[in-house]
């Protein structure tokens, strides 16, 4: 950039110089024009050399004021801005880090809550399953007990019924004998005969 600027300046300078060189020509062509020496080269004039001294003093004062006061002022403002921006960025970064942590915590909490809820659901389901199983077993046991008792009652009733059957057979045999033959057979004889007959038939 500097190089191109320099080349542009050189071109501009050469243009200007050629124009300046053309000036005497133009002055000659122009009617009544007069060419005088360059006042800048009149070093006998104390004003020409005097401006160097004045220029030196003014330049020095300007340099001192700029370097000691004006430029540090600008630098201070720029530094303050840099610091402010850095601080603000720091705060923003910290806030972002906090927010990220909070989001992570939230996700973590959500995950653990979900896991806990899942575990609770599984536990409830398992409990329910176990309770149902236990209930079923209890019911089965109760039913088995009821069946067992019922069977016992049936067996007792059957035994009782079978015990009464002999008496009915004895009485039926006595009535039949009496009505057929008109003979009254003593009870114990008849019972002995009925017993024999039952034994013979496998009762």
């Amino acid at each position: 950039m500097a190089r191109s600027a320099v080349s542009i300046t050189r071109k501009a300078a050469s243009l200007a110089m050629s124009s300046a060189l053309a000036l005497p020509l133009m002055a000659m062509v122009a009617p009544g024009a007069r060419a005088v020496g360059m006042p800048q080269l009149d070093f006998a004039n104390p004003l020409v050399t005097g401006q160097v001294i004045w220029g030196g003093v003014i330049f020095l004062v300007l340099y001192l004021l700029l370097s000691r006061s004006a430029l540090p002022k600008v630098e201070k403002v720029l530094a303050t801005r840099r610091l402010t921006i850095e601080n603000d960025l720091d705060i923003a970064h910290r806030a972002k880090a906090h927010a990220d942590t909070a989001v992570n915590d939230l996700h973590q909490a959500r995950r653990s809550a979900m896991a806990e809820a899942q575990a609770n659901v599984e536990k409830v389901v398992e409990d329910a399953r176990l309770a149902a199983l236990r209930q079923t077993q209890e019911m089965n046991a109760r039913l088995a007990e009821d069946i067992r008792q019922a069977e016992a009652r049936v067996a007792a009733a059957r035994a009782q019924a079978l015990g009464s059957l002999r008496q009915i057979a004895d009485e039926t045999a006595q009535v039949l004998v009496h009505q057929v033959s008109g003979i009254s057979v003593p009870g114990d004889v008849l019972a002995g005969r009925v017993n024999d007959a039952a034994t013979a038939h496998g009762f």
């Binding site: 122009a30 024009a33 007069r34």
Partner: peptide, 8 residues
């Protein structure tokens, strides 16, 4: 007028 004093 018709005089040019460019360096003045």
């Amino acid at each position: 007028g018709s005089t040019i004093d460019a360096l003045g």
